[in-house]
Amino acid sequence: MEILITGIVLGGTYALIAVGLTLQYGVARIMNLANGENLVFACFGAFWLWSTFTINPVLGIAIVAPAAFALNWAIYVVMLRPLVNRAKNRGQLEVDSILATFGLMFIAQGIMLLGFGGGYYNYNFLSQPIAILGANYGLNRIVALCAAVVIAGALYVFLTHTRYGTAIRAVAVDPTAAGLVAIDVPRASAFAFALGGALTAASGALLSTFYTFNASMGTLFTMKALIIVIMGGVGDVRGAVIAALLLGITETAVASLIDPGLTLAATYTLFILVLLFRPQGIFGRHMA
């Protein structure tokens, strides 16, 4: 039971990052390998807001997420759109965007290393214990989970119940056809990319309340998020959430039952199973 709840809390954070990434890859067709750095930036942002202005990190999302939105929009328009325009086919865009975002990843890491050094950071926020079903959990973790649920719910409503959200889903399915029904595909792509970045930043702010972070941990999160995206099916928000919870629980189980040093091995085991048996994702349909 303890494993289940801790796993769900961890999975909830993963879910937001993965949903952010699936928006970026599914809609804007950019495999953003610098997304983990986005998360770490947000961790430092929330930390800075808390330690300098004593702004509550959960409320801090209101500052961090829009900032990330603007930053990611700019990144998309300045750096990535030229690649989209010059790519002759999807394969080339994939290779180019992977390399470009690798560059971005290292530059972001470099900047953070210069700014904050390589040390580990954490801060105290709502760290008193709270009892659920007889076991104690950090209040900050539970608050983070609740906030993640609220954000994910808001996103779901936006994507399914608003005009613009539907347009974004249409671009995810078929950019050419979406263009034919008068959807501004370049703008929707930029928007989805920025929104994905904002979501990741939000989860970073939440993560920073209970997680010890440092400047170079982004890659690990990027990788987990990527694996979740593939497990859930590319562009599938619901699949990403379920896959994230599954991964969170599996990792927690392996860490507490076998060895904390083997979490990545657990992730990879899941990944290999998915690749071998359901490469289109847990809920994905076979494509022709």
């Binding site: 470009a100 690798f102 560059g103 971005l104």
Partner: peptide, 20 residues
Amino acid sequence: PNHTSLVIGIAFMSVVYLLP
């Protein structure tokens, strides 16, 4: 020594944008 990440990042960028 603190600038190695930046160098690699810039190298990736130049490969993509300048020397494909």
